[in-house]
Design a protein around this nucleic acid. Sequence first.
DNA 1: GAACAATGTTCTATATTTTGAATGATCGTC
DNA 2: GACGATCATTCAAAATATAGAACATTGTTC
Lengths: 270, 270
Amino acid sequence: MADPVTLPTPSPVRKVARAVKDSKAPAITRAAAILRLLGRSERPLGVQAIAKELGLVPSTCLYVLRALAEEELVSFDPDTKRYALEAGVLTLARHWLRRDPFNDLAQPHLDRLAARFGLTMLGVQAVGLDHMIVVAMAQSGSGFQLSTQVGSRFPALISATGRCIAAFGDYPVAELKARFDQLRWDNPPAFDDWMEQLRRTREQGFAVDEGQYIAGATVVSAPVWKGAGRPVHALVAIGIGAALGRELGALQAALVEAAGALSGQLGGGA
Amino acid sequence: MADPVTLPTPSPVRKVARAVKDSKAPAITRAAAILRLLGRSERPLGVQAIAKELGLVPSTCLYVLRALAEEELVSFDPDTKRYALEAGVLTLARHWLRRDPFNDLAQPHLDRLAARFGLTMLGVQAVGLDHMIVVAMAQSGSGFQLSTQVGSRFPALISATGRCIAAFGDYPVAELKARFDQLRWDNPPAFDDWMEQLRRTREQGFAVDEGQYIAGATVVSAPVWKGAGRPVHALVAIGIGAALGRELGALQAALVEAAGALSGQLGGGA
DNA sequence: GAACAATGTTCTATATTTTGAATGATCGTC
DNA sequence: GACGATCATTCAAAATATAGAACATTGTTC
C-alpha cells in the first residue's frame, strides 16, 4: 500500500515541524506535507486528523486546506467535512510528462528490452540524494513479474540504481555513509562491500543487485547522462532471479548500449 | 501546446493578485500559480521571469521557489538558475489515481466502447463549476500517448459534458449564464438555445455536441453518479463528425448504458 | 431525545513572513 | 578584458499570517 519510502516513517511530526521552521515559506512546506499525507491515506481525512498527524495547529491546517481546495489540488466534501487529493494534481503531472524529453525517448528502449528479455523495465530519475522516482515503465506481459507504477518513489541509494547514483555522483563518503545507514534492504550489504561495488560499477558502467534489495529479484541499472556532471536518469531492468539465468550477460550489454544511445539523444556526453 | 483552458488567459497577473489577497494562506496560492506557470512554460524559467509574469515580488517568489524545490515539486538548475516542474508531481498524481475508484472501473468501459465504435473515449471528472479534468482515456487505434492526455483541463460547461454538468447540477441560472458567457466555442450556441438543450439533456439522460465546441467533431457525454446529488463524472465519446454517421444512435445507447452501469458500481443512485 | 464529546470554525494579539530597496553575481557587449 | 545591464539574492521595516483560545456545529451515547 504505502511507498517503499514512506514505510519507514517513524514520526512525520518531527520532520514536518523541523522543515516548517527552517523554511522561509512555511505555508508551502505545510501544504506539501498535507498533500503527501492525503496521498498516503486510504480514505479522506478531517482537519483534526490531519493536524494531529502532522503536528500542525488545526486552525492553520484549515486555512492551508482551504487554499489547496481553492487551487483544486484538494477536494472537500461539505457533507462529511473530509479532505482528499483532487484531480488537479493530474494536470501538473501531465505538464511535467509533456515537457520531459527523457520519457518520450526512453519509452521505446524500455519497450524493446522488456519484450526481448521478458521482464519489467523502468526509467528512473534521481532527485538529489533523497529519492529516485519511476518516470517510465514497460512490461513484457508474459508470466509473473515484479512491477511498480510510474510515480513511485524510492530512497536514492537503494538497489542497483542507487549504486549508479552513488558511483557516478562524486559525493563525499561521509554523506553516502549517512544515507546508506538509513536504507532498508532484504539482505543489506556491508558498507565496505558496497563501496567496493561502487568501484566496480564505475569500471563496468552499470550496476547489479542480486537479491539484496528484494530477495529473489535481480536488478540491473545503467546510468543515463543528460549533460555533463552527474547522471540524473537510469534505465533499470528487474527480473525474478532464476528467470534471468544465462541471459544476464546479454541483458547487461543491451542495457548499457540503450543507456548510451539515450545519453546521446539527450545531448549528454556519455 | 497550452491547455484549452489556459489559452484564453489574458492576464494571470490580475487573477493571481486577487486570489492571493483573498486567501488566508497566500503563499499557497502563489505556489500553485507558480506550479501552473512552470507547467505551461516550454522551458525552465528564472525568478525574475516568473515574478514578472505573475505579478509577484521577486524576493517572495524566490522563497516560494526554494520551498517548492525543497519539496521536490520544482527542480532547480544551479548553473542556469532556472526552475521547472520536478518529477515529484508524478508521485502525487499516482497517489490520486490509486485512490480513485472511478478510474479502474471506467477504464474497461472506455476500452470497450472505443474499440467497438472506433473513436476516442474519455472519463471526465468535474471539479466545481470551474473545470473538468480528463482522468481516463481510451483510443481505438494505437493507444500510446495515452498518459500524456490524461490530466487535461477544460472549462466545466463546455461541449457535451458541460451540458451534462449544467443540466444535472441544479445551479442558479445566473451562475450558469456568467460562466457560459466566458466559454470559447468554434460555433457558440445562443444561451437560450443552450438552456433548451439542457432540458433535453435531462430528458434523454445524455448530451450531444455536434461541431459546436470543435468544428467537425461530434461529442456525446453521459453523466455518472457516485452518490446522490450532482454527478461528478461523465463518460465521453469523441468522433469526427462524418465517421459516426448512422452509428450515433447505437453509440448514445451504449454510452448511457455504460454510464448507468458505472453509477451502479460506484454505489450511486442512477 | 437530551447531554456529552469531539470536531470544525471564527477571532484577535503577536510572532513572522512579506516587501522593496540595496548588494552581489553573472551575462552579454563593446 | 572592462564596462554596463540584467538577474539573483540578502536585509531590515512593516504588513499580515499564524497560534491558541473561544465559539459553533456535528455526531454519539445513554
